[in-house]
Design a protein around this nucleic acid. Structure first.
Lengths: 325, 325
DNA sequence: ATTGAAATTGGTAGCGCTGCCAAAAAATCT
DNA sequence: AGATTTTTTGGCAGCGCTACCAATTTCAAT
């Protein structure tokens, strides 16, 4: 293995000189620089950041602990974050919790062993243990895609409760009164649960009952959305609008309607959440709320890179009036 | 910061003893173990793997350099790999190349600075520089989702050429003769290009011409599939089947047909590639080829963890006869 | 030339851990 | 009890790098 010492020897200079040249830090003459670079090139030297990190301070490693990779939401966040991190010479490391808080704790602990600059997590709901080790670690913490709760350090996203309320408000103003809900496991996806809470609350405040609810125990998926709506309608056929826990579910509902010739929105209105691209190119664009997923990742990374003071950043959301309402 | 030395002092034992207990390696009495664990607990000690890695040999870090996170294919691979890696106390680190070989080279170089156990890449097409530093690094290399080429070390996936050929063969046997293609940038997504090559070759061998082709310069997406099919049909309305570069594109094509009342498959057949879940719950299930994406990630990780000898693993693919052909 | 300041350079002590070795303690056998 | 084996333990030298400091060289100013 080629080490810095060998490069130094090959170039006929001291180790610290090589280190300075390579990091472009401190002073050195043009001549030495060329000599060092030539040796680096010739030997094919790749600096060892493990050693570098140990010797200096920061690891320039950012840990992303996300609930799922199947859900495109988190892939988007990852994408936003990794772009910015890369531009700033940081490295993204990730783990998937499967929406399990205990697993999150274990993964956070494992991540902290790498002494990351920051840990990014989804939402505010963590085990006590997670909070404790995170606090003790002294590294920056960013909680993503949720604002309804108290932040540990940094938080970036939008209010799910507000998004749910806005969805309800929209359906009410459009005149829908027999409204149902098709969702997925609220215990695991607490952000979906918050949206639902905001939604129900707004309906309640308007004196409109939530007629029926169909909740699938597993994760959200197009398939579960389709079967969920099917079951809901079998039980309560006279609904005039259905709110879904997210666009995947809503898309499934939409497919159910297409397959069974249910006219949309004449006979039934559908409303999703997230504003996925695919929802814009279905025969009828999906009515939904567009969430700032990539921006959340991007902003979170920017805050971490800039070592910004603790703060909460509300990126908001945008209601998209498609053709399904 | 709590270090191993402090734990040792607190527990009244030597450093190496703490190290042994924590790694459950070597021998120690039950009594010391309890004493050490108590101190670890009390001080909230989290081992520093940066230091551990430097002192020992392997980093237990696996670098995944993938073209895109938007494409669910790679999210699936990541998922498969990260599950296995986690079970074996390895850490996944990733970077996104945006299908750019130069960027891939830069990212691989950056990754190697972390002295990973293995580097996983998509496909066989890399710059000379990438190959050179990979070779020089001495770490394991896994090339994913492609078998049509020469492997550097390990390769896991399926033959895209064969998949394209199988697709063509299927359409031919179903009696389609006026076949078109809607695809995305073949220079960047070389695996899609290989499928297309296999497809064309098989048509050619059967003496059936590929009637028309519409290639979008950008990445694949539902939207580009939809607009692509629209342009293709505007130019060549009398096609009886269209092969798409992947399911995202095919789904877009399907939506175009739904929106414009084009009967499927009576008037036009659609065939995709990947076998995404969503394609199974559309009103008419999509005819496609299911690829072993999660399995590819899983197997790749298993090989790396087991430090298996160089080999090529063909996971095959499965043709799914949906209702669009 | 002589001096002082500035630029450049090398030596070396860690960073926190693991691996090795030898010492000490405990267990087993004559 | 003494001898021998086995288990348990601590000390310490690195891993490859960076940070700091002191030494050296260069340069401009007197």
């Amino acid at each position: 293995m080629v080490t810095l010492a060998k490069v130094a020897e090959a170039a006929g200079v001291g180790e610290s000189t090589v280190s300075r040249v390579l990091r472009n830090h401190g002073s050195f003459s043009r001549k030495t620089r060329d000599r060092v670079m030539e040796a680096v090139e010739r030997l094919g030297y790749v600096p060892n950041r493990i050693a570098g990190t140990l010797a200096s301070a920061g690891s320039r490693l950012v840990a992303l602990v996300i609930p799922s990779l199947t859900n495109i939401v988190f892939a988007d966040v990852l994408r936003g974050a990794s772009g910015v991190l890369e531009e700033n010479q940081h490295q993204a490391v990730f783990s998937v919790t499967d929406y399990d808080p205990e697993k999150e704790e274990a993964l956070v602990a494992a991540m902290l062993a790498w002494r990351p600059t920051a840990v990014m997590l989804a939402g505010f709901e963590h085990t006590e243990g997670t909070v404790k080790i995170l606090r003790a670690s002294g590294c920056r913490v960013v909680e993503l895609l949720d604002l309804d709760g108290r932040a540990l350090d940094l938080a970036v996203g939008f209010s799910n409760r507000a998004a749910g309320a806005a969805s309800a408000d929209f359906l009410l103003r459009r005149g829908y009164r027999r409204i149902g809900y098709v969702g997925h496991d609220p215990d695991r996806d607490t952000r979906a649960a918050k949206r639902f809470a905001g939604f129900r609350e707004t309906l309640g405040a308007a004196g409109v009952p939530l007629v029926d609810t169909e909740i699938h125990a597993g994760a959200s998926s197009v398939e579960n959305g389709r079967s969920g709506l099917e079951r809901l309608l079998a039980r309560t056929p006279d609904l005039d609008a259905v709110y879904f826990s997210n666009d995947d579910m809503a898309l499934g509902g939409y497919f159910h309607c297409l397959a069974h010739g249910i006219p949309i929105p004449a006979r039934l209105a559908l409303f999703g959440h997230n504003g996925l691209d695919i929802g814009r190119v279905t025969p009828q664009p999906l009515s939904t709320i567009r969430t700032p997923r990539v921006a959340t990742g991007r902003v979170a990374a920017e805050l971490v890179v800039a070592d910004a003071p603790s703060q909460v950043v509300d990126l908001g959301f945008e209601l998209i009036e498609g053709a399904t309402t």
